[in-house]
Amino acid sequence: MVRGQNSPSARCGRQVHPDVRLVNGDLMDQSSLISAVDRVRPDEIYNLGALSYVPTSWRQPNTTAEITGTGVVRMLEAVRIVAGITSSRTPGPSRPRFYQASSSEMFGKVRETPQNELTPFHPRSPYGVAKVFGHYTVQNYRESYGMYAVSGMLFNHESPIRGPEFVTRKVSLGAAAVKLGLRDSLRLGNLMAERDWGFAGDYVRGMSMMLAQDEPDDYVLGTGIAHSVRELVELAFAHVDLDWRDHVVLDEALQRPAEVDLLCADATKAQQRLGWKPTVYFEELVGMMVDSDLRLLSGPQCSEGGVIRELADLW
């Protein structure tokens, strides 16, 4: 589902997955969601829609709340209305199974490490707060209406097609650009923050596994290993035989108002109940992303400077 057939995500989706059929819908417009669910009558719904870049959530907190938080209510209401669900006793064969993309950012200022399904939430950004709202909304619709609705508390999941505004892709693009002589430096904020980074493909597999269970439940997915942004930078630049200290510039303006210092997953429940485990770990992931961006920035689309111009503001 996309907000308009001419959106950038629609164009990207057609290129990467030409067999995917696109449907119009807007998480801020209830009627469009009802129409989309009614038209498709899906067996499974994956709500990955959000204003998901944490720094932007500080600049647009109201929009973040509407899309990332209240958008979950609208999606669940669309499912409930189309399926004719009025209570937990409503017959269920026509009910689609619903997946909500919860986030490790909900843990925020962590109460314990590593974090599991029972760790209390303490979000440190409007994005994290909105995700907590969506997470508890899913629990309420599951308990009140008997809907098959689950939340995946996914820790950072990355790939070569990650948005360039996110730090992993910013670093992989930066290392590739410096190596190719397209840039001479990369500007970053807090190098000490630690995250549990994994491969997006592993996590999407986990989403599907959650909806394949007999009973709905919520799960944490992550590798269980945290790395600092500094480690990310060092590894990415070393992958192209460069010393990051010669090229990385620290910029206080890029730091968050309230930082999340450490996120690390305890995915024991998913491992035991789903049989899920990651197959790609940090070092391989970083190398994969840097190699992909070397190919991208060496390609014909960069000969005219198009990609570099688009990314200039990030660097």
Rank of each mutant, 00 (worst) to 15 (best):
Y145L: 15
L285Q: 03
V82H: 03
V220N: 00
D266H: 06
S228H: 03
I81F: 10
R195F: 08
N156T: 14
D241G: 04
S292P: 00
E105K: 06
D313S: 13
E143M: 10
R3Q: 12
L118R: 11
L22F: 15
S32H: 07
Y127Q: 04
T113H: 09
V132P: 00
V110M: 05
S125G: 09
S144I: 05
Y148K: 08
Y136F: 13
P42M: 10
G299R: 00
Q301E: 14
V233L: 08
T56R: 15
F98Q: 04
E231P: 00
V167G: 07
N190I: 06
L22K: 07
A212Y: 01
L296A: 09
V307Y: 07
N140L: 11
L173N: 14
M147N: 01
A267Y: 04
L22V: 02
R39Y: 08
V280A: 04
A253W: 00
L186S: 03
M289I: 10
D241Y: 07
R245P: 00
E284H: 14
D246F: 05
Q272T: 13
S32K: 12
N24Y: 09
L51Q: 14
R39D: 13
T137V: 13
A10C: 11
R195L: 08
E231N: 12
Y203I: 12
K269A: 08
N140S: 15
D241N: 14
D29C: 07
P160Y: 14
I225K: 15
P42W: 11
S208D: 12
F155E: 00
T223Y: 03
Q213G: 01
E231C: 05
V150M: 06
D218I: 06
A200K: 02
P120C: 11
R89G: 01
S102D: 01
V178N: 01
F155T: 01
M75P: 00
V167D: 00
W276Q: 02
A130F: 08
G305F: 01
P18I: 09
R74W: 01
D214L: 04
L180I: 05
A10P: 01
D291A: 09
G181N: 06
Q272F: 04
V54A: 08
T137M: 15
T268R: 13
S172M: 03
E252G: 13
S31K: 15
G13F: 01
E215H: 10
P257Q: 12
K277A: 14
P164W: 11
F107C: 04
G206N: 08
Q139E: 12
G152H: 07
D261K: 13
D43Q: 12
G71E: 00
R273D: 15
T268L: 11
C302F: 11
D266Q: 08
N140C: 10
D202W: 04
M209Q: 10
Y148C: 04
N24T: 05
Y203W: 05
K131H: 06
I45L: 13
G92H: 12
A177C: 05
M192F: 12
D38E: 15
I45V: 14
R21W: 06
L22S: 09
S185M: 03
L154C: 11
A200T: 06
S7P: 03
L294I: 13
K131I: 03
R11C: 13
T70C: 05
G222N: 02
G128R: 01
L51I: 09
L154V: 09
S298T: 08
S125K: 02
Y136K: 10
L27D: 03
V260N: 14
H227I: 07
L263G: 02
D261W: 10
R3G: 03
